[in-house]
Design a protein around this nucleic acid. Structure first.
Lengths: 237, 237
DNA sequence: TGTATTCCTTATCGACGCTAACACGAAGCA
DNA sequence: TGCTTCGTGTTAGCGTCGATAAGGAATACA
């Protein structure tokens, strides 16, 4: 009965003050117990943090499992990516414990997360939409997801980074060049082309065109809504 | 004279036992000074770790600067990627401090690293080989690089992960040789995209945009440039 | 010589991770 | 009912940590 209170207090504290700011004594004060009780249940501080990480993975997996698989595995993959990044932004300290550090990281719960990803990618492969072996695709997607999440945590102002990286990776992993055919990308591409060589337009036309393209492009800093919340969805396909 | 010895001892200790295993007193013993000396030079433990991180970035930047720019910016980009990953694998604890943690990460030395990357990407963009704006490409590449490095650190058995992720990202960021390499086809591509889905423009804006795009468009087949040079490459390490 | 500055010390503080030893109520068994 | 066991906590304290107050020794400058 005290174990849950201790674990809950530890999770809350890690989320509030980070790993380095959390002390056993603080956890005890929040949970209403004394230090030896913590050591009775969790062995040592590392054991307590492992339990926190395990609870974090469990929470993450629950979200992941609640996302039912749709008929389109590619859409499932996008949702999985967005869910991962969103989870990291919602629990930055916990995410740092789970992925960032050189910690154990071989948590059994982490393996199930990768298994879910592998199942989705396998379905995509069975549909003949993969440009590489399943394991390679899983590793590539996983690496890019973690990297985008970490960079977003340390630099939340980089709006659109997640969606762009996602489409960039998907564009190479999937045979369908979906990422290159969406509206924002086409506008960005043209914007790049306008920057070099001569353009058969008057200066005024060029100015108007640039403004319109920026409005269409995915890289503008126009919308200041919170990141991670399906910001770029709907553009593709 | 003691400052350098303290910093060197701290770097060595961080590399040997990690951040959490390092204590000021250990550093003092290794450097032959007493604790107050450390606080005299570095303020507090965070200050000392910041100095360690700064030294790490400095070491990383020196390696990066020593790689002279070649005539082919794409090759420079590949070498920069590989150098980044290699540095992370050679200094895992230091890399975790530099990128993994939720630390400030806005170190001035980190900014120069990104500036070097941006310069390379800018050169690629000036060659017309970019499918997205420079800033977007920089962010995407950066995120994927960090992710691949972190996953390789925590799981060194994933051979080939770095090269695969690198080529996957480059395959999306770089123009691969088909269409979209010139102004006319980029305009045509956007024109097609305007035809489907909803466009966040007013009817008037849309009309002007269409007119301008028609003026730019090649009215059918856009001839591609001579960029068939680099295709997919093996490039294992 | 007197004084200021730099560099580093001794000595100490409160908080930390952690542990030994013990207290106490709820079964389990005679 | 009495005795034991076990799960669940406690009190008290160890050694170490990060950090600080106060001052000493050497150098530089007037």
């Amino acid at each position: 009965m005290s174990r849950e209170r201790i674990l809950a207090a530890a999770i809350e504290l890690v989320d509030a003050v980070g790993v380095e700011g959390m002390s056993i004594r603080d956890v005890c004060a929040a949970a209403g117990v004394t230090p030896p009780t913590v050591y009775h249940y969790f062995g040592d501080k590392k054991g307590l943090l492992d339990a926190v990480v395990a609870a974090g993975f469990e929470r993450y997996l629950q979200e992941k499992r609640e996302r039912a698989e749709s008929a389109d595995p590619v859409e499932d993959l996008r949702r999985g990516w967005d869910g991962h990044v969103e989870f990291g932004l919602r629990n930055p300290a916990l995410y740092g414990l789970m992925y960032g550090g050189a910690r154990t990281s071989q948590h059994p719960a982490a393996a199930e997360g990768e298994r879910i990803l592998r199942r989705i990618v396998t379905r995509i492969g069975e549909a003949g939409l993969l440009t590489m072996p399943v394991d390679d695709a899983v590793q590539t997607i996983h690496a890019a997801t973690v990297g985008a999440t970490i960079l977003l945590i340390t630099n939340p102002s980089a709006a659109g980074l997640s969606a762009r990286t996602r489409e960039a990776v998907l564009g190479s992993v999937l045979v369908t060049g979906l990422a290159k055919t969406d509206l924002a990308s086409a506008a960005d591409s043209l914007l790049v082309q306008l920057g070099r060589g001569d353009v058969p337009l008057t200066p005024g036309e060029l100015a108007i065109l640039r403004e319109l393209l920026v409005k269409l492009g995915g890289s503008g800093e126009g919308q200041s809504q919170e990141v991670g919340d399906q910001e770029e969805r709907g553009h593709e396909q």
